[in-house]
Design a protein around this nucleic acid. Structure first.
Lengths: 227, 227
DNA sequence: GTGGCGGCTGAACGCATGTTCAGCACGCTA
DNA sequence: TAGCGTGCTGAACATGCGTTCAGCCGCCAC
């Protein structure tokens, strides 16, 4: 009774119990969060709870194994699709449904917070920096006063919006592939409008803010870029 | 040993055990999430676990009581400060530190999802609609192709970014007041830049998108406004 | 065939949780 | 002063959790 096409990026040859448990955990954690019980994961994999411990030592060990596997899958998927696009990693992951479970797991990880979430977020920021630089070089994107801050801002709002959308979609538990697609449908038009036209009729607010921060640069300054 | 000035909006006269428990729960849930144990809350309130049940019947009952109280406090705070501002409800709540606990609780509720989160989000969207209408009427904000979608988009990204920022800030557990302030510092400049200038150098992407959705309005259409 | 061995099970343990309950203590009424 | 009820406690219970462990089963070498 192993679930159908929504895979985790593993070759179907890998049917060892260890891999089955790991994949079941990724799927279950992605849907229910990391509060899901060991016994549930074991049942999903068609296996006893003891065996999970036997293979991974501890629940935290299972979590680590899942993190490693997901990290590897994401990295492979990323290097495989070099074709850029804004936040398109998420979109592409969602499009190919075979990565649905992985995407769900990543979102669960970010929602849960902690070091893993921070690391992943920094990666997204780096990707955004790269993509923006490309756009600026090509001439499709205007340069910013502070490229690092802009990349961080876009990463924060985009990923945050997906996260919130996930939170709000609970009830019928979150299916990441259709969830992200749905999200893009809702968000696409207004985002594009804002990105091309802005929203404010003049620059007085921005000018005031810039003037203010230049006058007293200690207070509302953000110190990133170095780290 | 009751904690100092970071209140929950209750008059200090209300020192009944019931109110003390409720306030302790709001503070604890806001910091640790709703997984926090009854006994922890009871200890925070300087009270036995049995008394919590005696007053609220069940853990879910306590949650309901907290929700009601927070809802009431937020409504009062909102009607009290009619002066508008974008997302300024959050900012103002953070500024007056006496509402710190309430703000933390609201964020925890949104992060946890469910009906409460959905209701709160719709409220934020409504506020955004109102504020944007005001701005458009005043002439400081450009009209949008789809006001409802824009309000929803802004609510989703703003609240989502705060949520993500909270997720990433864990470790030293989240203090909502300083957290939101910190968030505003990081986000202020790039947001203002984006809002006044946009980001794209021309409107070809937007034009293409609009043309595409007008050609086949069934597919990437978002159906809200009705419900 | 037989012995061993690694994958695997299922019962059991310790612990934390939400909840129940018998009863204590204090203050009000008579 | 006696009675009583309300607010409250602390021990106890059931449940679900992560984890342990003794042992079973099927496969492989000899």
């Amino acid at each position: 009774m192993r679930s159908a096409a929504t895979g985790t990026g593993s070759p179907p040859s890998d049917t060892t119990a260890r891999a089955r448990i790991r994949d079941a955990a990724i799927a279950r954690y992605g849907r229910d969060g990391f509060g899901a019980s060991l016994r549930t994961v074991a049942a999903d994999a068609g296996v006893s709870a003891g065996l999970v411990i036997h293979h991974f030592g501890t629940k935290a060990g299972l979590r680590v194994a899942c993190d490693e596997h997901v990290t590897r899958v994401v990295r492979e998927a990323k290097t495989q699709t070099l074709t850029g696009g804004p936040g398109n990693l998420l979109a592409q992951l969602a499009t190919m449904d075979e990565y649905g479970d992985v995407l769900g797991y990543v979102l669960a990880g970010v929602a849960a917070g902690g070091d893993t979430a921070r690391r992943f977020f920094e990666q997204v920021v780096d990707d955004a920096v790269e993509y923006l630089r490309l756009g600026v070089a090509t001439g499709t994107i205007r340069p910013s006063r502070d490229e690092a801050a802009r990349a961080r801002y876009l990463a924060l709002t985009s990923l945050g919006a997906v996260l919130l959308h996930r939170s709000l979609s609970e009830g019928a538990r979150y299916d990441p592939a259709t969830g992200v697609r749905e999200y893009l449908d809702v968000v696409g038009a207004p985002a594009l409008e804002l990105f091309t036209q802005g929203m404010l009729t003049d620059s007085s607010l921005l000018d005031a803010y810039v003037a203010h921060t230049e006058a007293s640069p200690a207070e509302p300054a953000h110190t990133q870029g170095e780290r």
